[in-house]
Simulated scan of single mutants.
Amino acid sequence: MFEKLVILEVARAMASHAALRQNAVSQNIANADTPGYAARDVAPFAEVYAAASGGTMRATRSAHLPGGSAAAAMISPRREPGTMSPNGNSVSLEDEMVKAVEVKRQHDLALAIYKTSLGVLRSSLGRR
């Protein structure tokens, strides 16, 4: 019954995604003055998770049809690079700082989901 709790898997995936996105943001900030550097980002968590779970349906028993293949988030050039500087760099430090705050919020949300689900699990076992 408690071998594989989906909510804990979602929290883990969200925290991993936040860590990967923070890595992309830090690379962008580190290369803000590098000529020709293209800003990078990671696809939003909702898109990555939907692709990994096969859309809207999941197989929860062996009798179910198999789901889609697991998709992994990757750091790739930003879809909308924004304005380019004269040296061909597309990093905006202001945008990167906003993205860093978004990543922190995503990580905090993942930790809150994990903590709350552990509290519910403890309550269901009769422990506090």
Rank of each mutant, 00 (worst) to 15 (best):
A100I: 02
A52Y: 10
T116K: 14
A46W: 01
T116W: 03
S124D: 01
S53Y: 04
G54L: 13
A38Q: 15
V120Y: 13
V48E: 05
L5I: 15
A43N: 12
A50H: 10
V101T: 12
S26L: 06
A52K: 08
T56C: 00
A11L: 06
E94K: 06
A112L: 10
D95V: 00
H64K: 05
A72T: 08
A59C: 11
A50Q: 13
G54P: 11
I29R: 05
A38C: 00
R61V: 11
L121A: 12
L20D: 02
A50K: 15
A50G: 14
R127I: 08
N87W: 00
L20T: 02
S16N: 08
T60K: 12
V98G: 01
F2Y: 08
R105E: 02
L118V: 13
P86A: 11
V91P: 06
E96D: 04
E102D: 14
R21F: 05
T56Q: 13
A18I: 00
S85N: 06
V91H: 05
K99Y: 01
N87P: 00
R127F: 09
D95T: 04
T83F: 02
V120F: 12
I75P: 01
F2G: 07
R58G: 12
P35N: 08
L121M: 14
A71P: 02
G67N: 11
L118T: 07
S123T: 15
E94N: 09
K115H: 10
A59Q: 14
V48D: 04
A70Q: 14
S76E: 11
P86F: 05
V91M: 01
A46Q: 10
V48T: 11
T34C: 02
F45D: 07
P44T: 09
N28Q: 06
A11R: 07
R128T: 01
K115W: 04
A39N: 07
N28M: 04
N31E: 10
R122S: 13
F45K: 09
R79S: 10
E9P: 06
V98Y: 08
F2N: 10
V6D: 07
L20R: 05
F2M: 07
L125V: 11
G36S: 08
E47A: 14
F2T: 09
T56V: 15
S117D: 11
F2W: 06
P86S: 07
S16D: 11
S123W: 00
S53I: 09
E94C: 03
L65I: 14
R105L: 10
S124K: 07
N31R: 05
S62W: 13
L20K: 03
E96W: 01
A100M: 11
S90L: 07
P86K: 03
Q22L: 03
T60Q: 12
L111A: 13
H17Q: 06
N89W: 07
T83K: 03
R128K: 12
A13W: 04
M74T: 13
L121D: 08
T56F: 06
R79E: 09
R78T: 02
E102Y: 01
V42M: 04
S69F: 06
G67H: 08
A70N: 12
D41P: 01
H107R: 03
F2A: 09
V25N: 02
G54E: 13
D95R: 13
S76R: 14
L93K: 03
L125C: 03
S123N: 13
M97T: 07
A70W: 11
D108C: 00
M1Q: 09
E3F: 05
Q106E: 09
D108M: 10
S53E: 09
Y114N: 09
I113A: 09
